[in-house]
Amino acid sequence: MRLGDMVIEPMTQRQVMEFPYKHSTGPIVGRFLAALKEQRQIWGQRVSGGAVIVPPQGYSEWDGSAGTEWVPVEDQGVVVAVAKVWQPVERLHPFPEPFAYVLVRLEGADTALLHVVKTDFDHVRIGSRVRAEWLPDGERRGSIWDIREFRLLPAA
């Protein structure tokens, strides 16, 4: 880039955009989250065809029909996918220390829940059995982080 006789280096301009949003849970996700806090219980919802969706959305992704009965599922299950984060990005990843993202198919569910393994995360692999590590009573707020992490269970 030139300006008259001058050679100008490529230029950039810094921009920071920040705004806090507030998302309504609605009755379905709201009930799911409230049960984490009040009951230490993970609930799914049955949809057309019989599948149990966890976390529930209130509808079937297959055909758009409304969800039906609520179904309690176990707080333990099998890891079906894993991604290890060895160098978390500041303010982007949920923790500053290394951890693993996992998709967990909980017992009784037909879909997998996204969560994390922190303790012994380097040993987690597809097929690992894990169980929810709950925050104690009084500390749960009705959030997916009411489950602190999923912990590896000994191989059966």
Partner: peptide
């Protein structure tokens, strides 16, 4: 605040389908 974004959208969609006597 009684509904999520998906819930809000589905409220209108459900009513349009019902109005037309149709399903997804």
């Amino acid at each position: 605040s009684d509904v999520s974004i998906a819930g809000l959208v589905r409220e209108a969609v459900d009513r349009a389908l019902l109005d037309a006597g149709l399903e997804h």
